[in-house]
Each structure stands twice: as structure tokens, then as C-alpha cells.
């Protein structure tokens, strides 16, 4: 469980995160959704102390994140970067093995774990184990990035726009495989995105952010059907029909008609 209490972060005169509090339950997937400059990445980076807040407190499983060695904290939290952040001088195997090595796992265990993860992420070990990141496509690199974050089986996974740099087709492929990973079942995941579709597809709960504040937090259904105000309505406007349609069970015609009516009223 991640508890965030009254976190504020400024860069000079600019307030990036403004007195935010929320909780992420164990096993829950929470998405920070917002346009660029909304403070969502800043917020994410404070969870593993890549950035330090000016004020406020963050606790993980009841323990303050500043009360432990920062390296130990980070080794227990997987992190996926938008631009992969892979080490160009490490092979794929070495990249994935980064955290297990820091944790001094034995060789055998690291090798087995690496191969298992590569198979789960559709990366053929015999072909890619000794390859370098530059030899891989963007989609494959992002899969390696995810494998690296999961390598030491951390209970928490932080993802900063993990599919953001990929083209639409690759993105939906990687995202699909990601969703199906059994590794993620029990993980607490915090994901940052500006992609509404992605947020609604992956989130148990969404924190919609604007100008360093949370505008609304709730399940995708709550945001869609009980928006807290104009900003939320406006933010979801473009994709509302598609989002609502995706939420309707096959054969539920009355609901489909309701959604369509909704769409029409909005258009008129």
C-alpha cells in the first residue's frame, strides 16, 4: 500500500505538485492521467525518491520512504521509463539482470529469471540474450524495459508513459501483452499517461490531474458517468462515445441506446 499525504513540490516559483494526498491499495493499478505539465511524472518520481518533495510524506506498507536506505527502497520498486532508459553498453541479458545483480542473487537464479521474463515478454532468448539495445526495435526495447523492471519481482511497479514513445500499432501490441502478464496480478502499479484510452483500459482507479492538483479520482466508470465537473467532462469529451461503448456488455441494447443519446446531446 502506498500512502501519499500532502505532497508539494516546486521548481523555483513553479508549483509542479500542489498538496496532493491519495492512497494506492495493494494489488491495485492506479493511473495518473493528465496533459503535459499537470505534475503527474513529478508525482511518480517522488514515490521512489528520484525527486524529493518540499513537504508532505509518503509511506509504503506503513513505513516512511525516507526511513530506509534509498537504494534498498528503489530495488524493491520496478521502474519503467518512457524512453526505455536501457543501458546501451549492457546486453539484453545484462540489462534485465541489473537489479537481481545489485541484490546479489546467484548466477543460476539470475539466468533462469532472465530467460523466463524474456519468454513472457515475447523476446526470443536465443536471439536476443546477447544482443545490445540498439539492435532491437522500439517495441522490443520497451519490452526489455518492462522485463528489467520486473526482474527482481518487486511488489510495486512505477511506469512513466511506458508506451508513449511507440507507434500506435506497436503500442497496442505491447500493451496487450503487458495486460496479459501473469507477473502483474499481485502487483501494485502506478502508471503515468496522457492517453485516455490507455488509462481507461489499464486502470482500477484514475487520478485525473491538472496544474499539480487532483481534479477527480475514481474508477473509470465514476469518471465517465459521474464527472465531478466541467474540466473532467471536457477532458473526456473527444473519447466519450468510444469509452462508453467499450463499457457495454454485448447484447445490452438499452445501455447502448443510452450511450448514443448521451453522445447526441453532447453533439447538439
Amino acid at each position: 500500500m502506498i500512502e501519499v499525504k500532502n505532497i508539494t513540490k516546486t521548481f523555483g516559483a513553479y508549483i509542479a505538485v500542489d498538496d496532493i494526498s491519495f492512497t494506492v491499495q495493494e494489488g491495485e493499478t492506479v493511473v495518473f492521467l493528465g496533459s503535459s505539465g499537470s505534475g503527474k511524472t513529478t508525482l511518480l518520481k517522488m514515490i521512489n525518491r528520484l525527486l524529493e518533495p518540499d513537504s508532505g510524506e509518503i509511506r509504503i506498507d506503513g513505513r516512511g520512504i525516507v526511513d530506509q536506505r534509498v537504494e534498498d527502497l528503489r530495488r524493491k520498486i520496478g521502474y519503467v521509463f518512457q524512453n526505455t532508459g536501457l543501458f546501451p553498453h549492457y546486453t539484453i541479458e545484462e540489462n534485465i539482470a541489473t537489479v537481481p545483480r545489485l541484490l546479489r542473487w546467484d548466477r543460476q537464479r539470475i539466468a533462469e529469471r532472465t530467460i523466463t521474463l524474456m519468454e513472457k515478454l515475447q523476446l526470443r532468448p536465443e536471439q536476443y540474450l546477447t544482443a545490445y539495445p540498439r539492435e532491437l526495435s522500439g517495441g522490443q526495447q520497451q519490452r526489455v524495459g518492462i522485463a528489467r523492471a520486473l526482474a527482481a519481482d518487486p511488489p510495486i511497479l512505477l511506469m512513466d508513459e511506458p508506451f508513449g514513445a511507440l507507434d500506435p500499432i506497436t503500442r497496442s501490441n505491447v500493451r496487450k501483452d503487458f495486460k496479459e502478464l501473469d507477473e502483474l496480478r499481485s502487483k501494485t502499479i502506478v502508471l503515468v499517461t496522457h492517453d485516455i484510452q490507455e488509462a481507461f483500459e489499464l486502470a482500477d482507479r484514475i487520478l485525473l490531474m491538472d496544474k499539480g492538483r487532483i481534479v477527480q479520482q475514481g474508477t473509470p466508470d465514476e469518471l465517465l458517468f459521474r464527472p465531478s465537473g466541467d474540466y473532467v467532462r471536457q477532458f473526456l469529451k473527444e473519447q466519450r462515445f468510444q469509452l462508453e461503448a467499450e463499457r457495454i456488455a454485448p447484447g445490452d441494447y438499452p445501455a447502448l441506446i443510452r450511450a448514443f443519446d448521451h453522445f447526441k446531446t453532447r453533439e447538439s
Binding site: L50, F81, T84, G85, L86, F87, T98, V99
Partner: peptide, 27 residues
């Protein structure tokens, strides 16, 4: 050295010395 790579090394839990020896100096 690419800032993203350096940040990744930090985020993985490398100590400043590990980051220097394994990533920055090699690159």
C-alpha cells in the same frame, strides 16, 4: 552520458559509486 540512462541507473537502485563505475565511466 545520456541523462535518461543516468536516471535509470539511479532508479534501479544503484549507489552513486555503482552508477559511476558500471554506467558513467564505461559510457
Amino acid at each position: 552520458v545520456d541523462a535518461g540512462v543516468r536516471e535509470a541507473a539511479t532508479a534501479m537502485g544503484m549507489t552513486p559509486l555503482q552508477r559511476l563505475l558500471r554506467v558513467e565511466l564505461v559510457l
